[in-house]
Amino acid sequence: MSKIHVSTSINGDAVEYLCEPEETLLDVLRNRVGLTGAKEGCGSGDCGACSVALDGRLVCSCLVLAAEAEGKTVSTVEGIAEGENLHVLQQKLLDHAALQCGICTPGILIASKALLEKNPDPTETEVRYWLAGNLCRCTGYDKIIRAVMDAAAEMRGA
């Protein structure tokens, strides 16, 4: 079967790629576009390590076909910082020591950013339920939740 041509926008850059019909967006990001920030932890949408935003909507990129990105915008962890300046969420994860191994961190960042865009003032319970699809095996989530709450507070004040 011939490959599919896709024109899309990734982190604000116009990108074109050829993909197989069954190829996932995650595979294309990692293997064809060269953006390895999104991670594959399960390939079945259970761990959230591959989270990206597709037209602003939080998705598991392992469950999205690469062909579906045609004409859309894709946001990955590589696009969160602006030049040398970290996003508030990135800085707060560092300040709160909210990562140990760091494999879940890209997904946590994308998911929390999507949360705060929808709900700038979430309760702890709302943060916990929103991030329930992002598995972290190292931290017990405590410092992650604190970092996201702190980032939300700072972004509201800014």
């Binding site: 953006l35 920030g37 999104a38 962890v77 590589e78 910082a81 990135q90 994860l93 560092l94």
Partner: peptide
């Protein structure tokens, strides 16, 4: 830390 929050 910075490498891990930027995907690098």
């Amino acid at each position: 830390g910075v490498d891990k929050v930027t995907g690098r």
